[in-house]
Amino acid sequence: MYRDIATKLVAAIQDGIFTVKLPTEAQLMERYQASRNTIRKAIDLVYQQGLLRRVQGSGYYITNIQLQHKTVVNLSARSLFNSHVHPRTLTSKILTFDTIHGDSALSRKLNIPVDEELYRIIRLRYWHDQLYCLEKAYYLRSVVPYLSTEAVNTSIWDFINEAYGIGIANSDDYLSLTNLNKEEAELMNLAQGATHLALDSCNYYKNNGLLDFSHTIFVYPDLALYFHTTNLANN
């Protein structure tokens, strides 16, 4: 339950419901009809993602990354709130949505059997009517037996969580600079060879089972990446 409340807190922050400071624990207990312990665990999850800062004796304040004008990709949030890596109001244009069987290249990359059945999704994503990224994603059908077109058009992660109760336990993320190949350039109507930031991600659910692999190329201007690190040792 505390994970669900944490997700609602993140949404409230991103939607501008909480803009400066979180309500008190008592107010959140009433708002979400939850115990103090559940609220504290939910707040702690959000804090771990770098969305809050703790002021002793005063409470939790919203981190100012949420108030910046430029688009911020919060990579700290991937493990618990994968759907919030990107802005919440992205729109999608589906280029490919089909079922394939993995080849030797995918088998090596994902450490899965050859011929593993996968959903393949290639889509362009837009933010304020401007191209934001090109995303190529593969989902294991052994884990996600059905994906709807509506989910692919909106939020795949919301659909998976609601339909199957599956969340991300951990992920491996690789950032790199990539030069657009001919196919990528044509899909985005950009110059072949242009350099952009790419993110390769493998997401895992419970017991370290692979759920998906994605390759995302970001092309939105003024894009900022955010990482949050918590120092657990007292110096």
Rank of each mutant, 00 (worst) to 15 (best):
R123P: 00
R123Q: 09
R123V: 04
R123H: 09
R123D: 00
L124G: 02
R125Y: 00
R125H: 04
R125Q: 12
Y126R: 09
Y126S: 04
Y126L: 07
W127Y: 15
H128T: 03
H128G: 01
H128Q: 14
D129K: 12
D129M: 03
D129S: 12
D129A: 10
Q130A: 13
Q130G: 05
Q130M: 12
L131H: 11
L131D: 08
L131V: 05
L131A: 06
C133M: 12
C133H: 10
L134M: 04
E135R: 08
E135D: 14
E135G: 01
E135K: 12
E135I: 05
E135A: 05
K136D: 13
A137D: 06
A137N: 13
A137K: 10
A137W: 05
A137P: 07
Y138T: 07
Y138S: 03
Y139C: 05
Y139G: 07
Y139L: 14
Y139R: 04
L140A: 10
L140Y: 11
L140P: 04
R141H: 07
R141K: 15
R141V: 03
R141A: 02
R141F: 09
R141P: 04
R141G: 02
S142Y: 12
S142D: 15
V143Q: 11
V143H: 01
V143A: 09
V143E: 06
V144S: 01
V144T: 02
P145G: 11
P145A: 07
P145K: 09
P145Y: 06
Y146T: 11
Y146I: 09
Y146Q: 14
Y146D: 05
Y146L: 12
L147Y: 12
L147T: 08
S148D: 09
S148N: 08
S148R: 06
S148V: 12
S148T: 15
S148P: 09
S148I: 09
T149N: 14
T149W: 03
T149E: 15
T149L: 14
E150V: 13
E150Y: 11
E150S: 10
E150G: 08
A151S: 15
A151N: 08
V152T: 06
V152Y: 10
V152C: 14
V152R: 02
V152D: 01
